[in-house]
C-alpha cells in the first residue's frame, strides 16, 4: 500500500514537472507582416511597452515588414535585375514607410508625422532604437529576404538581430503567453 502511494506521488510529481515546463512564459511574440507605418508603429509601441512590463519580446519580421528594417544609407551588392527592381519599389527603411490608410500620395503620411511630433508621440525610428536598448529581439524571415532580394549588409544595425525560418517563430510563439500578427 505504502509503495503504491509512493509510486503515485512520483507519477504526479513527474506530471507536474512536465506541465510546468510546457507552461507559456511571460513572453510576447509578434509577427510583423505589414510594412505600413501605422501598423509597424503599433507593433513597436506594444513591444517596448511589454519590455517596460518586464515581458520578454520577440518580433518576427516577414514579407512587407522586412523592408522596415532596411538601412537608409546602405545597399546590397550583387543583386539581379528583379531584386534591384523590387528594392527600388519597396520602402527603404522606416522613414519611407507609408500609412495603410489616408496616405494620399504621401501627404497623409507627412501630416500624421507632423501631428505625432506635435503630440509627443515617438517616431518609428526612435521606437526602434528604444526597442534595441530595451532588449527586444528581432528575427527576420530569411525566406522573405531571399524573395525580396534583400542582402544582410543593407539591413539596420540592431543589437539583437537574427535571420531565421518559420520553425524559430513557431517555437518562440509556443512559449509565449501573448501572440500577435500585425
Amino acid at each position: 500500500m505504502a509503495n503504491e502511494l509512493e509510486l503515485q506521488v512520483k507519477q504526479l510529481e513527474a506530471q507536474l514537472k512536465e506541465l510546468q515546463e510546457n507552461q507559456p512564459k511571460d513572453q510576447l511574440s509578434i509577427i510583423v507582416f505589414s510594412g505600413d507605418l501605422d501598423k509597424v508603429l503599433a507593433a513597436f509601441i506594444i513591444a517596448t511597452g511589454a519590455r517596460a512590463m518586464d515581458s520578454e519580446v520577440k518580433m518576427f519580421f516577414t514579407f512587407w515588414g522586412t523592408s522596415i528594417l532596411r538601412a537608409k544609407n546602405k545597399s546590397g551588392n550583387g543583386k539581379d535585375f528583379m531584386s534591384n527592381m523590387l528594392g527600388w519599389m519597396l520602402p527603404k527603411g522606416s522613414t519611407q514607410a507609408k500609412l495603410s490608410k489616408l496616405n494620399m500620395g504621401g501627404m497623409g503620411t507627412e501630416m500624421l508625422k507632423s501631428v505625432m511630433k506635435k503630440k509627443n508621440v515617438s517616431s518609428l525610428e526612435s521606437l526602434i532604437e528604444v526597442a534595441g536598448e530595451l532588449g527586444v529581439e528581432i528575427a527576420i524571415c530569411q525566406m522573405s529576404m531571399d524573395l525580396m532580394g534583400f542582402k544582410k549588409e543593407e539591413m539596420i544595425d540592431y543589437p539583437n538581430l537574427s535571420y531565421v525560418g518559420v520553425g524559430t517563430y513557431l517555437s518562440d510563439a509556443q512559449e509565449s503567453k501573448i501572440q500577435l500578427f500585425i
Binding site: I45, T48, G49, R51, A52, K119, N120, S122
Partner: peptide
C-alpha cells in the same frame, strides 16, 4: 509629461 504612450511607462520602468 513630454511623452505620449508608451513614454510614461518606459520612464517609470
Amino acid at each position: 509629461r513630454g511623452t505620449a504612450c508608451p513614454g510614461p511607462l518606459l520612464a517609470a520602468k
